[in-house]
Structures are given as C-alpha cells and as structure tokens.
Amino acid sequence: MNKLKEYVDSLFRKYRQTSKIRDLKEEVYTNLEAKRMDLIAAGFSPDEAFDQVRNSITEVDSLIEGNIKIDRFSFCRERMQWMLISLLSVWVITIPLRVFYSVFALSYLLAFVILIAGVYYIYFLKQRGKQCQKQTVYVNILYYRKVKRVVWVLWSMYFLFSFVMTTCVYFGSNLWFSRPVHIDGPYALGNMLVNYFLPLLTIVIPFIFGLNERLALKYEVE
C-alpha cells in the first residue's frame, strides 16, 4: 500500500467503515493523489509532493456528515446541570412516597447517585473544567439523534411492559376468573398507584439522552 493511501486510512481510522465513509475516503484519496501528481509534474520530488499534500489536510472531521464543532466545556457543564436537576426532581418526588415500601430503597439509591454526581460536578467545575475550557471537539449530531430515538423506543417498551405487568399482578386473577376487584383501604390503593407511577419516573433517562442533540446545536462553534 502506498504512503498516501496509508495516510488517508489513518485520517479515517476512528470512524466506523460504513459505505458513506468508504466513499468519502475514496474521494479524499483521489483528490490528494491528483494533487500529488500535479505537484510532481510541477517539478517537486515525490517526497516533497507527499509532504505538501499531507500538510494540506490534517483532519477530516469537518467532512463527515452530521459532525459539528462544539464548545466542550459549556456542553458538558450544561449536560451535567440538567442531569442533576432531573435526578434531584425525581428524588424530591420520591421522598414523600417513602411510606410505601417499594419507593424506600429507590429514594436512598437516588440520594446516593445524586451525591456522587454532585461531587463529580464540583470536581468538573474546579479541575477538569479548567483543562477543557476553550477546548472544541467534534460531535456527530446524527449519532446523538439515533441514540435518542433508540433510548425513547426502549423506554416506551419498558414502560408498556411494566404497565402490563403491574396490571397482571393486581388484576390478573380478577380478569381471568371474572372476580370483582377488592382493594383493602387507602394504603393498598396508594401502594398500587405508586407501582403504576414509579416506572414513569424513569422518563428522565430518555430526557437526559435527548439533551445531547439540543446542547450540541446550542454550543456549536465556527
């Protein structure tokens, strides 16, 4: 394999070799080869021509479909802020519901997760933030969009599954044997409603994944 082909391959190494990437790679290689031949025809040695061609293109990120350059610090900071706000909101909702056994462990688990996330957020602002301030990175908006769609589909399936399961647990035998529904008092009713309601709180997961696309567009830089 010639040096130019190897160089072009190295530029595309971090990308999955889809047909679009292969076409783009071929196009970049053809253009650079044509440029190299022109330089040789103009009197440059093959090594000098290769060096000039190589220096003319050092990255291909801007050529990839859906790639945008973003302000990394602002993107990460706002994403963490929204994550903390979402988790805290869910935690606050679960606190009064802790009288129900099924919520008790979840509430403590959330408090623990929030504590870790909060400590990391402070560390990010103090230490890592300094390192990546003014740093720009390429992110792929199409990838974020795809991930968001997949997470929403998975969450919808989970929610539907838990809804059906809860209904089967509480009313399965009533439906199957045509027996009247019997609920022993307000606590039993509350417990049942909580079991329907709890899976809904996981809506913060697709929400957090959905933030990536919105924030990438918000913090896009030239």
């Binding site: 706002e78 802020q81 903390l84 706000i85 805290l88 909101s89 935690w91 606050v92 929030i114 909060g118």
Partner: peptide, 13 residues
C-alpha cells in the same frame, strides 16, 4: 440560574 435550581432542589430534598 440552573446552579440555583440545583441548590434549591437539594435544599428542598
């Protein structure tokens, strides 16, 4: 504003 919301939610919690 978002940092304030985080602190407020933490205090409420």
């Amino acid at each position: 504003t978002r940092d304030r919301i985080i602190i407020a939610l933490g205090i409420i919690g």
